[in-house]
């Protein structure tokens, strides 16, 4: 009604009041420097700060995700023992660089703001990093790195240069236990891939070990109750991973004696490495 009425009335009589003229008059009568507008300007500044920080964190998180995926790829690429050692050393080096670089930036970025406000911005990066970190520690030392240990690595001391000498302050990048667990859930996918890869490289011992590790982790997840939505969603993938790796081990046992290991080569297609947003690609193929 308003649109039609406006044009019609406006043409007929300029003196007449129209809907838009009523609105315009009200808008024009507003003082430009009212306390209300001043309040909104303050609010705008607060919201902008929050948004900018969020964007910067998303960027950092994305950088971490990409580098972590590359590290995982590097760890999978090695076939011989010597190559594996070299790959693990390089991976450790690159993981440390991540901790000293982007993670420190996240810690500094969040230093003044409340925890959890931006947890959604960084969770993806944290998860992928934990996935890489735990896989690397498993291949390096044969044990899973715990939450405490990772958290301890993310404590920094920052030096402030002031006129009255340098002061040091501690900055911690908070890793939530949930993010750690989500990363560990993704680890089962990597272990499955590793088990399948090790069949192709003829290392059946490695395969059984990885398989057992996936089972142990799955058992652990089954025992949890009161897990969040996200973790519950990942449980499906984890269950599939267990099934796949057990089937692979079964195949190795039954048919492994009949065929030389080279006939069992079935490399997973690795085309979706750059896809950082989806976690479903962690299931892998065999």
């Amino acid at each position: 009604m308003s649109g039609r009425g406006r044009g019609y009335r406006g043409n007929r009589n300029r003196n007449q009041q129209t809907l838009s003229s009523v609105a315009r008059e009200t808008a024009l009568s507003l003082p430009a420097d009212s306390p209300v507008l001043a309040m909104f300007k303050t609010a705008a500044r607060q919201l902008n700060e929050r948004q900018d920080r969020h964007e910067r964190l998303v960027k950092l998180s994305r950088d971490i995700t990409i580098e972590s995926k590359r590290i995982i790829f590097l760890l999978h690429s090695a076939i011989t023992k010597e190559a594996t050692e070299k790959a693990v050393a390089e991976a450790n080096d690159r993981l440390n660089k991540l901790i000293k670089g982007p993670f420190k930036c996240i810690g500094l970025e969040l230093e003044k703001s409340p925890a959890y406000l931006h947890s959604r911005a960084v969770t993806a990066g944290f998860q992928e990093f934990i996935e890489a970190k735990t896989l690397c520690s498993l291949m390096d030392k044969g044990v899973l790195i715990t939450w405490d240990e990772v958290q301890k690595e993310m404590q920094y001391t920052v030096k402030d240069s002031a006129d009255d000498g340098d002061t040091e302050r501690a900055v911690v990048t908070m890793l939530t236990p949930t993010d750690y667990m989500l990363g560990v859930a993704d680890l089962t996918g990597e272990l499955m891939r590793r088990a399948v890869n090790s069949i192709s490289s003829g290392d059946s011992q490695e395969c059984f070990q990885s398989c057992q590790y996936v089972r142990d982790l799955y058992t652990g997840f089954l025992g949890l109750f009161g897990i969040g939505k996200e973790l519950a969603r990942k449980m499906n993938t984890t269950r599939n991973n267990v099934a796949k790796v057990e089937l692979a081990v079964y195949a190795l046992k039954v048919r492994g004696g009949e065929a030389p290991p080279t006939l069992l080569i079935q490399q997973p297609p690795m085309t979706d490495w750059e896809d950082s947003t989806h976690h479903s690609d962690d299931e892998g193929y065999y």
Binding site: G142, L144, T146, W147, P177, G220, G223, L224, F225, G226
Partner: peptide
């Protein structure tokens, strides 16, 4: 031994879930 470590990790996580609840 590995199993124990995993158990430990999951027990600790369960504790954090419980207090959260």
């Amino acid at each position: 031994c590995e199993n124990e470590l995993i158990n430990d990790i999951f027990t600790k996580f369960q504790q954090s879930l419980d207090s959260d609840q």
